[in-house]
Design a protein around this nucleic acid. Structure first.
Lengths: 150, 150
DNA sequence: GTTTAATAGTTAAACAACAAACTAATTTTA
DNA sequence: TAAAATTAGTTTGTTGTTTAACTATTAAAC
């Protein structure tokens, strides 16, 4: 067990924010260049649906780490843009089933290459073992907080 | 030079979000428990000022990675809570100098231990070399995006 | 079987982020 | 020095997040 100096961790958080905003910024730039009127957060929803369509809001929320109130709001905006639609689930009327519209489905072909490009840039000249360490590190930190909240 | 699979990176982003929200959640919890009416973002401003008081808004914005419009808003909220004050800079009247009030200064003694605790929890049982790898990784990713935007 | 729990989704209010347009002050440059 | 460019800060509009209270529906417990 090693004691990690606080100052090191403060740096860590700072760099982490820089990476997050660089990635968001990259996508925002792409959207702007191609006149695609969506946000990074809406993309998170679409990206999930491109992989698995026809689920309820809670499942999307859990998958992309947002609460259900945020999802309601995000989906309102996606419905307004005619990219997804809500249907009531006749099996369980508490659920609303979210499906992509044709337009929402088609966006995949346009946008997925940008995501690939973003990850390609991010990982440029970085050994995959280093990415692996990052993953292990994140999981360890997250587990530490989980442990704390028990 | 190793090619990093996209799927790996998507995971990376996901875990990164989990860590970020665990940390924000931890602080939010502390604030709530002790009836401290500030947010994580306001804390970022205070934390900077505890280290260096009496600077203009842009310097704070650059240091904590926010744009100046967000800073205007955050400072409005901090002024309303009587934790900081704005003064016009007589040397350069474009500037507004931000200083802590006594109350804002005193909060340091209350809150800093929570930040230390947060970092202590985060780093529990994590070798400092792994944190070091994380830092190197972030800096590399960030530089990749910087390079891209030249 | 009726009461109680839990689950899915919505709403409202306060807070925050981002872009774009704006004012005011200072610096550069021609 | 006068015009142009830069810098600091504000404002507005749209979007996103969080908490808490709320409705409706389903499942569990008694």
């Amino acid at each position: 067990m090693t004691q990690t100096p606080t100052v090191n961790f403060a740096n860590f958080l700072h760099e982490l924010s820089k990476v997050t905003s660089a990635m968001k910024g990259f996508m925002r730039q792409k959207f702007k260049e191609h006149d695609v009127n969506i946000t990074f957060e809406m993309l998170q929803v679409l990206r999930f649906l491109w992989g698995k369509d026809g689920v309820n809001q809670q499942e999307i929320a859990d998958a992309i780490l947002k609460d259900k109130a945020s999802l309601t709001y995000l989906l309102d905006n996606l419905v307004r843009r005619k990219l997804v639609q809500r249907t009531e689930d006749s099996q369980d009327r508490r659920n609303k089933i979210i499906t992509l519209t044709d337009e929402g489905q088609e966006m995949k072909d346009l946008i997925m290459p940008w995501i690939t490009e973003m990850f390609e840039i991010a990982g440029r000249n970085i050994p995959s073992e280093l990415i692996g360490s990052g993953l292990i590190l994140f999981e360890a930190i997250y587990l530490n907080f989980e442990q704390q909240n028990k």
